[in-house]
């Protein structure tokens, strides 16, 4: 009897928390289909009339297509470059443990904690003529994810047997062949994890473009939404539609890559 009560209680706690999580999503979704006046009251009831046109309106007014492609560009390219180059670096750091490499590892690890100083970062970008450009934002994103990628991938490489390297080298493989043909396939889980986590964090990032782009042509989706909100404070139906469209890509990536996220978050942490 007591066990049953316990079970029911647990289920109730979970259900209650689920409602708290879902309710805001539901509110946003349902109100994104309402008229301006109705959405302003933010009721949870279904719309009296469904305005699917809100979405088309928002895509045009909010410059969402441009924002979307900017976000895809920043997140996709920066993450790909960072994950591949960090994997190479982590491989060498992990396998050839000279004093210098050990030092470099902890040196890079420090970046996990440091805050970025955007004001002087702009000055540095200026030197390379990269201020207010897609290229500049891209490079900043790449640099900011290096510590996390090196840390996570190195921890994974620890579990890849060194004998593989030896066998490959005896068979005559050079370093590039060894890394890309033999090692990379084995790293797939951690590479996918890094890719997904960093892709989402770039997609969600707000501070970097806030400092680095004064030109709205360069805005990713998060900035577009915020700007749109600033201009249309009373049009909650549009704002909500805009929010849905901005969230959709990350939610899709999350649902597709879920098992990699959960596995990867902890690979460095919970092994011991």
């Amino acid at each position: 009897m007591r066990q049953l009560a316990n079970k029911v209680l647990k289920q109730l706690v979970c259900l209650f928390l689920s409602i708290i999580v879902i309710l805001p999503f539901y509110m946003v979704l349902i109100n994104s289909f309402k008229s301006k006046g109705e959405a302003a009251r933010m009721k949870l009831s279904l719309p009296t009339e469904w305005f699917f046109s809100n979405y088309i309106e928002v895509i045009e007014k909010g410059r969402l297509i441009r924002g979307f492609f900017n976000s895809v560009f920043y997140a996709g390219i920066s993450t790909t470059i960072a994950v591949v180059t960090c994997a190479m670096a982590a491989f060498v750091i992990c396998r050839n443990r000279t004093k210098i490499n050990n030092f470099l590892y902890y040196f890079i690890l420090c970046g996990l904690f440091f805050p970025v100083n955007y004001v002087t970062l702009i000055k540095v970008l200026n030197v390379f003529n990269l201020t207010n450009s897609r290229m500049g934002i891209l490079i900043v994103f790449i640099s900011s994810m290096i510590p996390f990628c090196v840390f996570t991938i190195r921890n994974f490489i620890l579990s890849v047997p060194v004998e593989l390297d030896e066998a490959a080298v005896i068979d005559g493989a050079g370093p590039l062949k060894l890394f890309f043909i033999i090692i990379t396939p084995l790293l797939k889980p951690t590479l996918v994890t890094c890719f997904i986590l960093q892709f989402m964090s770039v997609w969600n990032d707000f501070l970097t473009p806030l400092y680095l782009s004064s030109d709205s042509k360069l805005f990713p989706m998060t900035m577009s939404v915020y700007q749109f909100f600033g201009k249309n404070k009373n049009y909650w139906n549009y704002i909500y539609a805009d929010i849905i469209l901005t969230c959709l890509p990350v939610i899709v990536v999350y649902l597709l890559g879920q098992r990699y996220i959960v596995g990867g978050l902890t690979s460095g942490a919970v092994k011991e």
Binding site: V116, I142, S143
Partner: peptide, 29 residues
Amino acid sequence: NKKRIYPQWFLVIPLIAYVIFFLIPSLLG
């Protein structure tokens, strides 16, 4: 030969990016 199969140049890109666009701004700051 560890130096040959684990070449140091594998480290170049992350290291340069990290130093120039992450570390130097902090020091400059």
